[in-house]
Simulated assay, not measured.
Amino acid sequence: MDSIEKAIYGLACLYYIIIPLGYFATLWLPASEMTGKGTILVTGGAGYVGSHTVLELLNNNYSVIALDNLVNCYAEKNDKPESLKRVEKLTGKQIIFYNVDIRDKTSLDKIFKVHSIDFVIHFAALKAVGESVQIPLTYYQNNIAGSSTLFEVMQSNGVKKIVFSSSATVYGIPQFLPITEEHPTGQGCTNPYGKTKYFVEEILKDVCVSDHEWKVILLRYFNPVGAHESGEIGEDPSGIPNNLMPYIAQVAVGRREKVYVFGNDYPTPDGTGVRDYIHITDLAIGHVQALTKLNDTTFFGWKAFNLGTGRGYSVLDVINAFSKASGKIIKHEFVNRREGDVAASFADASLAKIELNWTATRGIDEMCKDTWNWQSKNPNGFKKK
């Protein structure tokens, strides 16, 4: 056998050995080992919850495409949002980013056409309870119309797996505590923000009825607080914070004079509102666990899960815990109740433990410690000055 015949024989052997091995590998190896765990489109990916979730997704071997209209996050002109740049630094991985509003159907469709998207995690929404009472039409237009547009584009591109960032506000005034997923929703929602979350949930439920290929996880989380343990990313609201923890942090760092406590006459142990606060990292991990549920071949339709600690803390509890964590005196003043607030709300999150293999592990002390670590390292948030 001459050299040419030997070469041909060798190539033939390789062909008939390697191709069958590759075929059987697709049968034996999990898809995650063959191609990674999949590509996730994260709407509102540069925001507080979005950026922390993107970090956890990257650390769990997912590819991420993030889009955001930069309404509630910081970015230099024509640059990637600072939160995502820091996530890239922390993970050593790249994020594809688009500056797109979810109401822009044409731009959304282009993203789905360019990329092979496996799942969507939908955060993009205006989210301030008090503000929603003042400008309800803006909230309905952004949160409901924007979500509907996103779902239409998903449907037309055959992407039918989604985790929706919902809220405990869909439960309205609690009829019992702790709140389980069986609690009625949409009854007595106290503000437009909560109503938008409820309406979007209902839209997704109807989509599941109309098309049985859809898989939808509704994550109803309570009050996200804290920051990544590195202090590199955290909550950086535009303008005056609408939530308690970032306001306290800005008082502690000297950006604001004092905390205004909305109401001290609620039927609670110290008269101030009681909430279930959940560390942002625990919350982000919950989204990763939800993707595993979506990949379950026996799961179709929709299901809701509470993400919380199952324990309530009052406003004064949080102020005292933050003072301890920061070593700062947190000045505060009692003022009238805020329209749209409820006296107490905390979760029963046992269903998430059973079906998502998820539970919150970080308490109020760690929430305050990590918030202070973020705020003290970044007194002006993501802005350099």
Rank of each mutant, 00 (worst) to 15 (best):
E213V: 09
V170N: 00
V225I: 13
G226S: 06
I40F: 12
I240H: 12
C13I: 15
I364D: 01
D68L: 06
Y23Q: 05
A290G: 09
D365C: 02
P246F: 06
Q94V: 11
F346G: 02
A304F: 08
Y62F: 13
Y23W: 10
L21M: 14
D104H: 00
I102P: 01
T309F: 02
V49P: 01
W302K: 08
V159T: 11
N357P: 10
A227E: 04
H287I: 06
G38T: 03
F382W: 05
K331L: 07
L137Q: 14
T361M: 10
V335Y: 05
I280Q: 01
Y98C: 04
V207C: 08
K383C: 13
V318K: 01
A349W: 06
N78K: 11
T39W: 01
L177Y: 04
K369E: 14
E182L: 13
V225F: 12
G50Q: 03
W374N: 03
V87W: 07
G263W: 03
G286K: 00
T91A: 10
A304Y: 07
D276N: 07
G158S: 03
L294M: 08
I95W: 01
G130L: 09
I203F: 07
K89S: 14
S116M: 12
V342E: 08
S326R: 04
I203G: 02
V153W: 03
A352G: 05
F97P: 00
E333V: 10
Y98F: 13
N157P: 10
R311A: 13
P178R: 02
S326K: 03
L283K: 01
G286Y: 00
K205A: 12
L150H: 01
K384Q: 15
D79F: 11
H115W: 10
G239E: 05
T361G: 07
N157V: 09
V87C: 08
E229S: 14
H212R: 14
Y15L: 15
I40R: 04
V259C: 06
Y313G: 02
D101S: 11
G263D: 05
G327H: 09
G36E: 11
E333Q: 12
P81G: 08
L84E: 09
G186D: 09
G381C: 06
M34R: 15
I135T: 14
K377V: 08
I117S: 00
T190H: 00
I117D: 00
F24Q: 06
I102N: 00
M1K: 10
F112L: 11
R275G: 11
L108R: 01
M154T: 04
T26M: 11
D79R: 15
F305G: 03
S132W: 02
P379K: 04
T298E: 15
Q175W: 07
A46T: 06
G312V: 10
D101A: 03
I330M: 02
I248C: 04
T149F: 06
D2F: 06
K205I: 12
S230Y: 12
R337S: 08
G38D: 02
Y260L: 15
V114H: 13
W358V: 02
G36P: 12
V159M: 07
N295E: 15
L58K: 09
V335E: 09
K127G: 13
D270C: 12
S326C: 10
D79E: 15
A249R: 00
A31T: 11
